[in-house]
Design a protein around this nucleic acid. Structure first.
Lengths: 192, 192
DNA sequence: CAGCAGCCCTAGCGTTGCTAGGATCACAAG
DNA sequence: CTTGTGATCCTAGCAACGCTAGGGCTGCTG
């Protein structure tokens, strides 16, 4: 019993080690630099060990993505706690886009790369729900007659578009603040 | 002179052939299936021929992306010609998202994959400018006091977010029309 | 007809994600 | 303390990837 639990604990620790190493490597040098060989070297094990924990590289990235959603959720909660109710939307929006800007590799894992995560369903990992709910609460005062969840989805999509297009140099970076302010003007207070 | 021009013509034709083959293969089986070997086999040449036309696989995808922008620009122009001025924004938005939905591989090349295309600068390929200008013209009646280009960038980013998140199953597909309608309500007629 | 220049293919390099198989270690039983 | 057993982890290798070097063939030129 004791031996069994120690082994399970060690396994869990090593799994955490792998995910952390993958995250750090990706944030330092981008996901292209995260090869199974380099990752194995980083955690000081051989490659096959990775596959005894995860089905493949995608699964490792998905685990990193879940950690990213937890981080994002915390940042959004902090922003919402810092700013009073109706103006919280601006703080949340600013926090969201600056998160995407400051942690590009993490944001990529969450939204561009890992495709096999369940998302808009009930069995999505819990950090995804909490992060989404943070935006819902910030949006709620501005939803008007519309369903808050629907407004949140739309507003979130707009933030995501701004973040990704700016990051990919599709949009000039210098006008980012102006675009964000414009978006907020269109989404604060319901038209009716 | 005649021989020279014939060779140049043949080169141009073959280049077009490569781009078309890459596009068709990507649209049929996704970009993962577009390997240099399969592409070479498709055009009935050996691999190195690809590299005498393009610097690498990325450059081929960039060429496909430019074709995609031309297609998108045509579709948007048609939508704007079909619908009168103020309501054209809805038609443009619907055309945009359905383009992303119907041609996912093409849309990926345009916005997710090829990073080395100049975008928001003057030396961007001409189809990019015309496509963007189509949205500008649809947005203009609703810009109010704001700069139309800035509103366009923001609105376009929102459309892009809706398209990519819906496609990646981050947003439930069934509510897409509702989200699009909500976005349009927020962007038609300026608040002041 | 001889020489030359350009085109294009065969072959191969280094790297990728992933896996099979055997060696090695820690534990339990006699 | 020795022996058997079971899990653990590493070495080695596979197929496929993007890309490139080098030589043979074709066809134009003088």
């Amino acid at each position: 019993m004791s031996i069994q639990s120690r082994r399970e604990r060690e396994r869990a620790e090593r799994e955490k080690l792998i995910v952390t190493a993958a995250r750090e490597l990706a944030e330092a040098e981008g996901w292209d630099a995260v090869t199974t060989r380099r990752l194995a070297e980083q955690v000081e094990y051989s490659q096959p060990v990775l596959y005894s924990h995860f089905a493949g590289k995608d699964a490792i990235m998905a685990a990193v993505a879940v950690e990213g959603f937890a981080d994002l959720g915390e940042a959004l909660a902090a922003a919402r706690a810092r700013v009073a109710a109706p103006e919280a939307l601006a703080a949340v929006a600013e926090t969201y886009t600056s998160f995407a800007e400051r942690r590009p590799a993490l944001y990529d894992a969450m939204f561009s790369q890992a495709v096999d995560l369940p998302f808009a369903t009930a069995d999505a990992p819990e950090p995804l729900h909490t992060a989404f709910n943070e935006i819902v609460e910030a949006v709620r005062p501005h939803a008007g007659a519309a369903h808050p969840a629907l407004v949140t989805e739309t507003f979130w999509a707009a933030l995501h578009g701004l973040a990704t297009l700016t990051r990919g140099r599709r949009l000039p970076r210098h006008a980012h603040d102006d675009r964000l302010a414009l978006l907020l003007a269109r989404f604060t207070r319901a038209p009716d």
